[in-house]
């Protein structure tokens, strides 16, 4: 794991520390303790209370790419909106590089570049102007803003799209332009809420190369919200798994997968009605999570091989469309940890 945060030293500035500053350990970026946020939804009789975040503790180190993984509605976005000063928590503390974000939400924009899920404020601007405006609003001078805009446009391969309004772009292209607005102005912390949604592989690679470069050169910390398990496994140093507003695990992707033990995942896709009188099929039918014609199970490798051999050599093979036997993914880890929702995305 990259620990570039070690390069930071204490006491680099001239002025006196602000209240609440410099309390955390030198290698902490975000220290979150007991964070709780509750919403009320509905009207009068139908009013219900939603516990969006419950007693969340996190310690995100400087220079790491830290992920928040969970299905839609797990409370990821609510959590990052509190970490960026957009939302005031009901209880708990958020320490960002020594600053108390709950008490002084105005410091967050001066340390963090936030990429939300919405681009509504920029929709009618051209890509170039959206990036340049964002740079100006991060206090860059007009010349510096233009230079930063040109650099990030070239870096992310946006040159051909630079003069087109965001709302005329495809979803992935628009998202790429929004990532460019987050990268401009070199903040030490990037909070990116599902940054690569809808992007093609070329754009994804450009984004991760740009983020890696910032991490290598400036020790930038990245907090990534995702429900994409493949991306999470590939890019994250550590990941916190959220389910129903709680952190149910926090470890490296490898560490989380180890929680599943040495089980493997067996997936079968049927093209017709599988013969349930076949003992192997009946056993799979009992254990599998069935979504449409796809059956997914986890089991020890020997059993998996045995069942797969039985299925592929018996009558069931005639209605079997496809099968895969794979090592566990973060999704398996999520389910093994007690995640109660489907909804993570692969690929």
């Amino acid at each position: 794991m990259a620990m570039l945060g070690a390069a930071f030293t204490k006491g680099g500035g001239a002025a006196a520390p602000e209240p609440g500053a410099a309390r955390g350990p030198a290698d902490s970026c975000y220290r979150v303790a007991g964070l709780t946020k509750t919403y009320r939804t509905g009207r009068r009789t139908a009013r219900t209370t939603v516990h969006a975040n419950v007693d969340i503790d996190l310690d995100i180190r400087r220079g790491e790419i830290f992920g928040l993984l969970g299905p839609n509605g797990a409370g990821k976005s609510t959590l990052v909106r509190q970490l960026t000063g957009l939302l005031r928590p009901d209880a708990g503390s958020v320490d960002l590089l020594g600053y108390d974000v709950v008490r002084r939400p105005d410091v967050a924009p001066r340390l963090v570049a936030y990429l939300g899920q919405e681009a509504g404020a920029l929709d009618e601007l051209t890509v170039a102007l959206a990036i340049e405006t964002t740079a100006r609003l991060r206090a860059l001078s007009p010349e510096a803003a233009r230079a930063a805009r040109s650099a990030v446009v070239a870096e992310l391969g946006l040159t051909d799209l630079a003069e087109r309004p965001l709302k005329r772009l495809s979803g992935g292209q628009r998202r790429l332009a929004c990532v460019a607005t987050a990268l401009v102005g070199d903040r030490p912390v990037l909070v990116l809420d599902e940054p690569t949604t809808g992007m093609d592989p070329v754009a994804r690679r450009a984004v991760w190369a740009a983020i890696d470069r910032r991490r290598a050169e400036h020790g930038t910390t990245v907090l990534l919200v995702t429900h994409n398990v493949i991306e999470a496994e590939t890019v994250l140093d550590r990941v916190a798994v959220l389910d129903e507003g709680r952190v149910i695990a926090c470890d490296t992707p490898g560490g989380l997968k180890a929680a599943v033990g040495d089980e493997v995942r067996l997936e079968l896709v049927w093209r017709g009605e599988p013969p349930l009188d076949d003992p192997a099929v009946a056993r799979l039918a009992r254990d599998a999570v069935r979504i449409g014609r796809r059956w997914t199970t986890r089991m020890d490798p020997a059993t998996a091989r045995e069942l797969l051999a039985a299925v592929t050599s018996g009558p069931a093979f005639a209605v079997l469309d496809d099968f895969t036997l794979s090592t566990p993914s973060l999704e398996d880890a999520y389910l093994a940890l007690g995640g109660r929702h489907e909804g993570l995305v692969k690929g």
Binding site: G12, P17, D106
Partner: peptide, 22 residues
Amino acid sequence: TDAAAPTAPDAPGGGVPLAPAT
């Protein structure tokens, strides 16, 4: 602070200065 300032003179929090406000 001045818009053109490349870095902030603000108080650091554990070594990280605040970027200037616009």
